[in-house]
Design a protein around this nucleic acid. Structure first.
Lengths: 200, 200, 200, 200
DNA sequence: AATGAATGAGGTTTCATTCAT
DNA sequence: TATGAATGAAACCTCATTCAT
């Protein structure tokens, strides 16, 4: 008696998730290019063949990871703009970004790594561009926040804010030991808002 | 009439430099992993075999590039500390860093990429660590500069300065189009030093 | 209410026939080697697993197709010898062969292809040999027909007849466009029998 | 001291020829699709890698074989039309074709095999088409010969001639044992020309 | 010093076949 | 009877590296 289609669908979803988790682990450890499909399959505890049942290749695997990443990014911004004041919105963005890099520095590092890599592979290139585009879109929203704060040059302020944030994230993810992330955040926010955030 | 040993050494150095230049070009275009030795040799206008005469392998090539990079970094700091005041020293550091990323964004990008994911073997990993170590050493020197400025928390200020700088460099090298690098630098420096740099 | 054994057998036969039809279609389109079991199963509208319920593998599938082909060939000759005169018998053979290649040039092509290159394993090779043997047996029967016509060298005449026929079939199946199959047949038959066939 | 470019060129030509010979042997034995690159390399006594140094893949290998085949075909027709009378020209064509199939039945079989195969591979498809095209072009030249003989329907006569010839070649190459090739040829030529060829 | 022919390990991908359900 | 998830062997291809010349 065959499995029901729903049961099969469930199995597929679990298997794909399992592979995605394995893939990001391996990609983080070895880098996307140095990682082999076999590495990923072994980590996921399955055969290479099965991996190809779910993903059409290494590029497809990366594509799906990037799409997930994009969703996360979108989600954060959506949450941020529900806050009531511009300052709170920016603080939320900063908090979230730093919390994220603190909890998973390697993931932040990995996506930046991917984004800074010259890409021979058409498909990967395309999806990396999507990620860049989404970050650009998010940046525009952040400019709006600064505009609502009445800044004279919201574009520049927003850029300043983002570079400061990414600078921290980058350095934290590269040198996570003894990095005074919270102090630095407070320092930065106080410079921006003459105000010291007391939240997490 | 055989060449003198010194002459031979000089020729050898020129040949190696030629290959190094070709290598970084190719690595930047394709990425270290995707670049082939043959690509590098062709770019340098020599045969694969001859390349192996100068470098013991692909990893060795990358190693030497990293060592060159370290030398550059050391050199910049050495220049910086010849300036007479701490502010001038920091301004020199910032100017130099930004000028550098502006002229060769891909080189900055490439080394950061390499540094955050030593995709190659053990030996490259070791030399990447050297690069990190050098950057850490340089950071300590920068802390001293801030200390000489009489800052209460020179460590934090220095970190703040570096993160801001690297944030800019990172974002500029990723999105070079329409990036107001100089404006942003002025904005940053003015916040740091209540002062707007009028240099280059 | 369980089905009777006969009913089961009949259903099984229908299922196998369905798969056979799908298989020859796919084999003709992609070639035996390039065709996948999954292609065949999809074309038949069933799952891979079920296909293995009816056929023990890809080679077995081809084997059964060859056996069907042999049956067809036997059948044609059986029909032919019911005709009353040798000439009618030969005309029937020629008509049938050419009608067949005209309607299904690809099938003729496929079996000739298979026969001239048993690309598969031992077992398929064996069954290809059966097909060759059957064609040899049929050839002998055709020699008898020529003998009954009183030909001095029936063997040679029969061979001449067959080569002419297969030459036409081969060329028609390879270049089906604008091929004057019927004219050519008339030309050939008239040379053989001083007679022009007026049938379809 | 490096080899001179000419020496290298010579080595390359020898190596390519060696591989071509190995390839056609293996393709004949196993069929193009069932043959693996490794089979060919082993037969040629070289590594897979070297094979890829000379040919960009299996399809490229076949391409070159087909191009050689086309050259041969062109050459035969060029020779034929140097003969003084149409009959001599046709006799030359027939003799040459049959001599060829007699000496290398497998090669004739192989190229027909290739030509009758549905081809997924774009490049192979293209070059097979070239072969077909060349055969079509040659056919036109043959029609001219029949026209010069004053035939009422040279097109049909030429087609008849070709189908008869290919029929023989096909059957001989499939059943080489005890095949009365020469007798059959004489039979055919005498029917065409009321004349029995006394040559080779 | 200089070449590129040659190797072989390792990577990606496909697919016939098995098997739990 | 029926499904498709799962396997693994084998195919194609690339490229760092070696070596005869």
């Amino acid at each position: 008696m065959p499995r029901s289609p729903e049961e099969n669908g469930r199995i597929r979803q679990l298997a794909k998730e399992n592979i995605r988790v394995a893939a990001i682990e391996v990609f983080i450890e070895k880098g996307y290019h140095a990682a082999s499909i076999d590495d990923v399959a072994k980590r996921a505890g399955i055969s290479k063949g099965l991996l190809y049942n779910y993903f059409s290749g290494k590029a497809d695997l990366l594509k799906e990871l990037i799409l997930s990443r994009i969703e996360e990014i979108v989600h954060v911004m959506e949450e941020a703009i529900t806050k009531s004041t511009p300052v709170e919105q920016l603080v939320y963005i900063a908090d979230h970004a730093l919390l994220n890099v603190q909890q998973k520095p390697n993931i932040y590092r990995f996506y930046w790594h991917i984004q800074t890599h010259p890409e021979a592979d058409e498909i990967v290139s395309t999806y990396c561009q999507l990620l860049k585009d989404e970050m650009a879109r998010q940046f525009k929203l952040q400019v709006d926040i600064f505009r609502r704060m009445g800044e004279a040059n919201p574009q520049l302020q927003s850029l300043h804010f983002s570079t400061a944030l990414h600078g921290m994230m980058l350095m934290y993810s590269t040198y996570p030991e003894n990095f005074p992330l919270l102090e630095l955040k407070d320092e930065m926010l106080s410079r921006f808002f003459k105000y010291i955030g007391e939240e997490s």
